[in-house]
Amino acid sequence: MTATAEAPAAGEVASFEVTLRIRRMNPEGTSEHGAGEEYWEEHTIQAHATDRVLDALHKIKWDIDGSLAFRRSCAHGVCGSDAMRINARNRLACKTLLKDLNPAKPIMVEPIKGLPVEKDLIVDMEPFFASYREIMPFLMTSGPTPERERLQTPEERQRFDDTTKCILCAACTTSCPVFWTDGQYFGPQAIVGAHRFIFDSRDEGQWDRLEILNDKAGVWKCRTAFNCTEACPRGIEVTKAISEVKKVLNTGEI
């Protein structure tokens, strides 16, 4: 998804046809499908060069079948609503351009894996947010509150920059083979969330968080499959963050 010199200029309309194969499930059933039954459905639509998978889903929902259910809000990759499995890889639908996928084959769109499917592309996000809450994702300090800001050098600020970018989209956690099979593991996002505070020079709650991550549901479950790093739409080096946390646990030094 990087720059291509031949990309048509804005406003130029290069139209092409694409087919989406969408994994569907209606918990209440439809005239053709039973309640909870999972099935594939295909739609072919006209797309433009700047269209994203989200635009294609909207075309289907708005002009063909309003019952198609998915979450979305910002439409430019910053709110974390629309992580889904697109051609067997976790991505944000609003950040995946159709022209960057092979248009010769149907584009496969499925809900993210490892969380209960509620309807079509919507999954239950509660277990994911529960893991995030578990690692105490808030600044912990002791002593009196200072008058002015707490000081932090640009280098100290840079130390945890990468993990501050997380938008809680769950693409990483739901791409993790350990998370799929192990009912206990917090998943990579919770470690990213903890990393953001562990390496913040202002925070004093590192050891509380590290203790949680040292638990059986924590970092040691990670088998460095790297799926999470590949999946992260914010370009966070998730595996690196996890290994930095492991290293602190091994050495006792931050």
Binding site: L139, E149, L151
Partner: peptide
């Protein structure tokens, strides 16, 4: 309002002296 957010942990960009 800005100082409150900083105290809540907001990672502002910093000056060389470490201020917001």
């Amino acid at each position: 309002a800005v100082l409150d957010l900083e105290k809540m942990g907001l990672p502002f960009n910093r000056t060389e002296e470490g201020k917001v």
